[in-house]
Design a protein around this nucleic acid. Structure first.
Lengths: 219, 219
DNA sequence: GCCTGTGAAGCTATTCACAGCT
DNA sequence: AGCTGTGAATAGCTTCACAGGC
């Protein structure tokens, strides 16, 4: 009764993000329109899935021309993006942290890593690949000043929970945890766990046996 | 009718991997047994979910003592692991690649990164964090010699598909793709896409709105 | 009592299939 | 013809709830 903007399922949000990135970065230069089965092929999902997902965006395609790429991207962005650029904090400036900075440097996104944090004194108070690095002690202050409400945890497993507690304390609303230790956070914090070990063990398991069914998973 | 070893669903395999890592790395020292609700709390899933998942392992717990940790770990391992140590190739020795090597260095796992590859001449023919790095041209040869059937793709997006083609050519059976570009691979290759951008956009989306339901996702 | 294992129910996600449009 | 949007059907996943055991 409260929400006039109906909530979009988790899985759909993920695929919308994928669709947008495909449309922006991998669509042929000279085409302005495409059909559901074109986008489906790019995203490795079924055409029915694409149409179903796009229902949630409110964008209406045309039966003869399909979807206008520019309009569709705009429509997805209106859902996924904050009106202003959204500030993100990165915790951990090791190899993984730097990889993440690179990752976002190359991508047009309205997500913007505005601050990195580390407890190693030799890594802070300088610019790392374009992002200012601070000691963890300044977390609360910067989170407030920069209006950050999303954070990426890229610290060693044994430091992850401590960092998470500080993030929650500082007022963060969503966390992407890349450390190999699952986190405890309050109910109202949105958390995604992304443990590469788990993913790789899954791949190894299915690679080992002979499976005949379609074996591809977006996560 | 063909398979005497019934196939375990994707999701369950992922959680079994998680359970094992929790039992090995995060169980209190002095306890030998635990109940489904204990493991459930550690893994952030329901107790019913744990019991259901363990059905697939064949391990039978005792109603009064619960599950014996050592036995359960052994039982999960018998399912997830190859009898011998399983060799994995890493493609891309940038920050992300090094982060992954670190990741696995610290974990007891029978997955073993035995070779890294890169097309940057300055990065190859040396040991990177304990792993020998080779030029991509040696991929086929090493994959065959080392009996590698799983690979991690950690190269820039624009190089990912080329690498994937070579991996398939070399006889790889499963791929974990960490590059921001989805891959096309034949049906019989098991592929997991793990795009951090997509995950972060999801987190940002749900962090932005006020959700009241449990907001945690293992992926 | 409190636990496990599991059939059955409930829920979610995906696909099918077709009316309606151009 | 070939497309879209969508109700209905299906498949897949999670939880409920309870029999049976210690």
């Amino acid at each position: 009764m409260a929400n006039h903007v109906r909530s979009i399922p988790d899985k759909v949000v993920g695929r919308l993000s994928l669709y947008r990135s495909l449309l922006q970065d991998h669509a042929p230069e000279n085409v302005t329109h495409l059909f559901s089965h074109d986008l489906a092929r790019m995203a490795r999902v079924s055409a029915a899935q694409v149409r179903r997902d796009l229902m949630d965006t409110g964008y209406i395609g045309s039966p003869n021309k399909g979807y206008e790429i520019k309009k569709l991207v705009g429509c997805i962005s209106r859902i996924l993006d904050n009106p202003e650029c959204e500030n993100v904090a990165l915790i951990g400036v090791g190899h993984l942290g730097r990889a993440i900075i690179d990752y976002f440097q190359g991508r047009r996104s309205n997500l913007c890593i505005v601050a990195a944090f580390d407890n190693n004194p030799s890594k802070v108070n300088r610019i790392v690949q374009g992002v200012k690095a601070y000691p963890i002690s300044q977390l609360q202050e910067i989170v407030e000043n920069e209006k950050i409400n999303t954070a990426i945890v890229a610290v060693p497993g044994n430091a992850a929970q401590g960092v998470a507690d500080q993030l929650v304390q500082a007022g963060i609303r969503g966390i992407l945890n890349l450390a190999p230790t699952p986190l405890y956070v309050p109910e109202n914090i949105y958390l995604v766990e992304q443990d590469m070990t788990m993913s790789l063990e899954k791949v190894a398991y299915f690679a080992r046996r002979s499976f005949n069914k379609k074996g591809s998973k977006n996560e």
